[in-house]
């Protein structure tokens, strides 16, 4: 366990040193992060200009969902995407061999290979959205609400990561999947609205198949003290199940992998 902590430290340090070479990116990435948050904010503002509440959510409450969305997008683009895009490249070129022969767990090594620290600017943007949201609502969150939301945030990260591992495992079977990143991002875009906006089949898909509701709507509901304990427990169980399935599929895929040159 300690060995993996050291490994993680080394990998993050390498990414950080690399990022420090491109200091200007910090400013640019920060500006772009703010701009994208605004693009999500503008339609909400226009829509709530017409109505006081949409699908059971007021403007302030919907902003909480948007805050979680911005934060998770930062994690997806800063900590999950870069490493796993690297895996696809490894598989295509056959250089995954060099990762597999290293004396550490391969899933751990590929998942921590690269971070983009500047994407952390999304966290600042998200914090600003949260503050503004609670000012609109008029009161802050309760302690147990924050605690539940943080637990759900952890499950959301786990879910995102597991979904990504599942997607990347597809690269072992159909090699040309580098633009799956974009497809994944495009589907994740739907997580910016409270899930009750989606109707019928889409809502079921976004809760159980691609659990976007668990990632942004549930944490927002937790902050508003609207999430029941069974739902919380269900979300945790669901996330663990997803992670287990992802791990299983990864191990199966690795077993099937034959290096590109052989």
């Amino acid at each position: 366990m300690l060995r993996y902590a050291t490994l993680l430290y080394v990998q993050i340090r390498a990414s950080l040193l690399l990022a420090l070479q491109y200091r200007w990116d910090f400013v640019i990435d920060g500006a772009i992060s703010v701009l994208w948050a605004v693009t999500a904010l503008v339609p909400l503002t226009v829509a709530f200009g017409e109505r006081a509440s949409i699908a059971g959510w007021t403007f302030g409450e919907a902003l909480l969902v948007l805050g979680w969305f911005t934060l998770l997008q930062g994690i997806l683009e800063g900590a999950i995407n870069p490493s796993l895009v690297g895996v696809v490249e490894h598989i295509r070129r056959g250089t995954l061999d060099f990762v597999l022969i290293k004396p550490a767990d391969s899933q751990f090594l590929v998942s921590t290979a690269r971070f983009l620290p500047w994407r952390a600017t999304n966290a600042v943007t998200a914090a600003a959205v949260f503050v503004y949201a609670f000012r609109r609502i008029g009161h802050g969150p309760s302690i147990q609400g924050v605690a539940a939301a943080l637990v759900l945030f952890a499950t959301a990260v786990l879910l995102l990561y597991s979904l990504w591992i599942l997607t990347v495992s597809a690269a072992f079977y159909v090699v040309k999947v580098d633009n799956l990143t974009y497809l994944f991002g495009a589907v994740f875009d739907a997580a910016r609205w409270p899930s009750s906006i989606f109707k019928g089949a889409l809502r079921l898909v976004f809760t159980f198949v691609i659990p976007l509701a668990l990632m942004t709507t549930f944490p927002a509901q937790a902050l508003l003290d609207r999430l029941s304990l069974p739902t919380l427990a269900g979300a945790i169980a669901g996330a663990l199940l997803f992670a287990g399935a992802a791990r299983f599929v990864w191990l199966q895929s690795i077993r099937k992998y034959t290096s590109a040159s052989s």
Binding site: A186, D189, A190
Partner: peptide, 12 residues
């Protein structure tokens, strides 16, 4: 398929 945004907006 990455052009999902109009459909997401339609839902809203």
């Amino acid at each position: 398929l990455t052009t999902t945004m109009p459909l997401i907006m339609l839902a809203l």
